[in-house]
Design a protein around this nucleic acid. Sequence first.
RNA 1: GGCGCGUUCGUCUAGUGGCUUAGGACGCCGCCCUCUCAAGGCGGAGAUCACGGGUUCGAAUCCCGUACGCGCUACCA
Length: 494
Amino acid sequence: MISETPRVRFAPSPTGYLHIGGLRTALYNYLFARNQNGKFILRIEDTDRKRFVEGAVENLLDTLKWVGLDYDEGPEVGGEYGPYFQSERLDIYKKYAEELIAKGKAYYAFDTPERLKQLREEQLKKGLQTKYDKFALTLSEEEIQQKLANGEPHVVRLNVPPDETVFVEDVIRGRVEFNTEIIDDQILIKSDGFPTYHLANVVDDHLMKITHVIRGEEWLSSTPKHVLLYEFLGWEKPVFAHLPLLLNPDKSKLSKRQGDVAVEDYRDKGYLKEALINFVALLGWNPGDEQEVFTMEELIQKFSLERVHKAGAVFNIEKLIWLNAEHLRSKPNEELLVMLKEEFKKSEYSNVDIDDEHLLLIIEAMKPRVEFVKEFITKCPYFYEAPTGYDEKVIKKRWKEDSPGLLKKLRDKFAQLENPAKEDYEKALNELAEELEIGKGKLIHPLRLALSGIGTGPGVYDIVHILGKEESIRRIDTALEKIKTPNTDSTEEK
RNA sequence: GGCGCGUUCGUCUAGUGGCUUAGGACGCCGCCCUCUCAAGGCGGAGAUCACGGGUUCGAAUCCCGUACGCGCUACCA
């Protein structure tokens, strides 16, 4: 047994940002670990120096922190199986590479890139499978030692045995078979002394006592190499689980060209981490009942690898938006207030003086009408500044010949109110409608237009109340001045 | 090309031989609520379960084949 408690890891390569597919992989690992009372480990696979990106690790950690996927061992938090950066474990890989060589399961190879390229081209031309021809195996021990002593550039390759069947047991896909004939003598240690993914991940997973390898399906094809490595080293294999891929709308692997793929892009666009987590969790997994909206706690409680399914999933933004709105609405107003204030600072109204009490009222009124926090601003700018214009379509539909006169009366009615509560405005309007024997709508719609400049939004009484008596009256006066009725216009025919 | 994986409404999915005239969700449409817009409630359209064979009294579910899609095929991960 590798470990009594389940231990899983998320092992990203720090190439710049956290990919949404990586987030899904990280999340499933996290959910599995938390569900099983196991450990979630973060390991940085930085063995490709050519792809080193400044600040990528920091960015990754930052993003993981934002979504709330806290790990038990890894960068910054440490742990007893470190270091958690592969670039700091070079000696370890070297040691096991040498062990494999000693056992005849790996060997030094000194081929030049040119020879490799040529070999490849010949194989391609003959329609053969491209793989290393094991030329280095024809070298005598003396030759090898000589070359090594001379400091000739070399790599270490896996010595794949011919014509054997390798089995990969996968929780999601069942037993998958591979013949070793199609497996290349994979480079284990590159000429720069760094290991390739294949060696490093097997060595680290073993040393870090990883019990379950949960990763993307793109790794399934190279898993037989890993299985061989475990067997050659005499190590117990972890349980494998290869997750279905996340796809573009055209079903190709999710990529940058067809939309946002970085988690930070979604964060920047105002998506809630709760929505993103919820959405991504559902891409390839479901709890078996009909629940769609989940908190992280619920996901942890219900998650299981057995319910991950096999086919790739198209990343469909519509549902994400809906989930964002759902999670937004489920938040207490006080929490939304904090987020709104943050958003407010960045908005064009940053210099507008508005207190928390008013913002809270706006939040309450707009909550069912927004999908993003920023819409507490963009969908109701009239709460922050007087309308700069009036929607023509609404004027046409709601601003009748008698509207100015009626609104004037309503204005005077409001003016008489002393320290009015929301209900008082409603009462005043109802009274006026009764006195004049007209429908309330004849007052309400012009009022809404005068106050907001548009035809949609929360209840008018909410608007009047939030704006306050003075401001409302001011806006009514302005509207009376500025809005011309379509009828008036049409009488001015030439 | 080779190897591997996959294929249920537009999308995410339920479904593991009879409970299925294939269920839910998003989106779309309609109705109700209503001062508007939302939210909410109710309802609707939408899937010959990729296709073709088999097995079986009976198949989306099991088997075989085909097609299509995707992944891998690097001194990348």
